[in-house]
Amino acid sequence: MALASLATLLILAGYAALCAISPFGPCRKCAGTGLRKLTKPVKVCRRCRGNRHRLRVGRRLLNTGRAIHRDGTRPHRSAHH
């Protein structure tokens, strides 16, 4: 049980490091090509819009957490000082 918990923590720490070092990963829908071949016409991938990369899920969670923390801790500036 402890070994499984340690392995899970190591995997999560590795993924967190990957998200910090490389926040963008290849698009899973087009396999990083930016194009989709469904039939004869080749179209731009709708998911990545042809950019070939998308923001990783872990990085999106980190950005959302930072935004929530920032909005909840900093006082709002008003027009009257």
Rank of each mutant, 00 (worst) to 15 (best):
A79K: 12
R74I: 05
R56Q: 12
T33S: 13
M1N: 05
T33C: 05
T8I: 06
S5W: 03
L55N: 10
R49H: 09
N51H: 03
D71G: 01
R36I: 15
R70N: 08
A20C: 11
L55F: 06
G58H: 05
L35H: 10
V57Y: 08
S78H: 09
V42A: 13
H69A: 09
L10G: 14
A7R: 14
S22C: 11
R56Y: 01
H81F: 06
A20T: 08
A20N: 12
T64R: 08
R77H: 13
S22G: 13
V44L: 00
H80Y: 05
G34Q: 00
P23M: 01
L9M: 13
R47V: 03
L35G: 01
L18H: 13
G34V: 05
M1E: 08
T64S: 09
G58C: 03
R47W: 05
K37S: 11
L3W: 02
N63G: 00
H81M: 11
C19V: 15
S22V: 13
Y15E: 15
M1I: 00
R60N: 05
H53C: 10
T33A: 10
L3C: 06
D71C: 01
D71T: 03
A2P: 04
R70E: 08
D71S: 11
R70L: 01
K40W: 04
P26D: 08
V57P: 14
R74K: 14
T8S: 15
V44Y: 03
M1Y: 04
L62I: 10
L12I: 09
L61A: 13
G14T: 07
F24R: 14
R56H: 07
K43W: 07
G50P: 01
L35F: 05
G32T: 02
R54I: 07
C30D: 00
L9W: 10
R66H: 09
Y15R: 15
A20K: 12
H76P: 00
F24C: 09
C48N: 00
T39G: 12
S78L: 07
R59Q: 10
P26A: 07
L9V: 04
V44D: 00
T33M: 03
I68P: 06
L10Y: 10
H53V: 12
T39Y: 09
L35P: 03
R77Q: 12
A16P: 03
L38N: 13
A17V: 12
L6C: 05
L6D: 12
S78E: 10
L18S: 14
R54M: 02
L10D: 14
L12D: 15
P23F: 05
R74D: 01
G14Y: 03
T64N: 07
R74A: 06
R56M: 04
L12P: 06
Y15D: 15
H69Y: 11
P41V: 04
R28G: 11
D71H: 02
R52P: 04
P41T: 02
G72V: 00
